[in-house]
């Protein structure tokens, strides 16, 4: 067992864990989400592994569907964020001094405003819901990745082999696609993957605070926020299982991203 195999193993396990809610969600059907007044407030059992809530809804079904929704929202938001980061980083590093100064200022501006405040503001302005959450999360998560990409490009641009390439008569476009991109894409993919857990957590956070998804949707944030009212009555399972699932989901992403990074990092690749 060498490190590469082990790393690949971790990445696959994390990936399967992430895929699980997406596959399970449509299989479960929505019947379990209906109100069953005969089965209210039941503790975890074999028929309801995560228990039921005050309306008799199966918490397992709600959690899995919530996770699937969170994954979808997180994926879209993280991709949008990654796209913004890539474009702005690229522009800052290639379009000259004025563009660089403006984009760097923009990055600093977004980093200086508290994250959650900005999230809530944007979600509020766009009217909440799935669309609002995606826009809010997408618009707030790009700065650190954009900064990383900008720095990486600037360093590559001054490296000797890029300077030589220009002396060989190669065009800017040619250098960008043959020299810069092959160095950038692993950074970009891993950076975007690392945005994922953030996006999911913040989606849950704004939903929890009431600015996100509508209460009819089985989102993790809504489940957690609703369960708050019942925690004091001893119904611990309402928050415990969905919260644990969220934790596992986020952690899987972390494991996936860090292991993928180890595979593409030339300094560690021979270990």
């Amino acid at each position: 067992m060498n490190l590469r195999k082990k790393t690949l193993g971790y990445a696959i396990v994390a990936f399967v864990l992430l895929l699980l809610p997406v596959v399970l969600s449509p299989l479960l059907g929505s019947e379990q989400l209906a109100t069953h007044l005969t089965a209210r407030n039941e503790a975890p059992s074999w028929s309801h592994p995560f228990g039921t809530d005050w309306l008799g809804r199966d918490m397992f079904t709600r959690s899995i569907k919530g996770l699937a929704l969170s994954l979808g929202v997180g994926l879209t938001a993280a991709l949008a964020s990654g796209l913004i980061a890539g474009t702005l980083g690229l522009m800052a590093a290639t379009l000259g001094k004025a563009a660089d100064r403006f984009i760097s200022w923009l990055i600093d501006l977004f980093l200086s405003v508290p994250h959650l405040v900005l999230l809530l503001l944007i979600a509020f302005v766009t009217g909440g819901g799935v669309k609002g959450v995606i826009i809010a999360v997408g618009l707030t998560h790009w700065p650190s990745l954009a900064r990383l990409i900008r720095a990486e490009i600037l360093q590559l641009k001054s490296s000797e082999f890029v300077l030589v390439s220009r002396h060989m008569g190669r065009s800017r476009w040619w250098i960008a696609t043959r020299h810069l991109l092959p160095h950038l894409w692993p950074q970009f993919i891993v950076g975007t993957l690392l945005l994922f857990p953030h996006a999911i957590l913040h989606e849950a956070a704004i939903t929890f605070l009431g600015m996100g998804l509508s209460p009819h949707q089985p989102a993790i944030g809504i489940i957690l926020s609703e369960s708050m009212r019942y925690l004091s009555t001893g119904m611990w399972w309402l928050a415990f299982f969905p919260g644990l699932c969220l934790l596992i989901l986020v952690r899987s992403f972390d494991v996936l991203a860090t292991n993928l990074y180890a595979l593409v990092d030339p300094n560690r690749s021979q270990e």
Binding site: K5, L8, Q270
Partner: peptide, 11 residues
């Protein structure tokens, strides 16, 4: 030295 060849193989 043990080095990675192609993919997961070592040489």
């Amino acid at each position: 030295f043990t080095q990675y060849d192609r993919g997961l193989r070592q040489k």
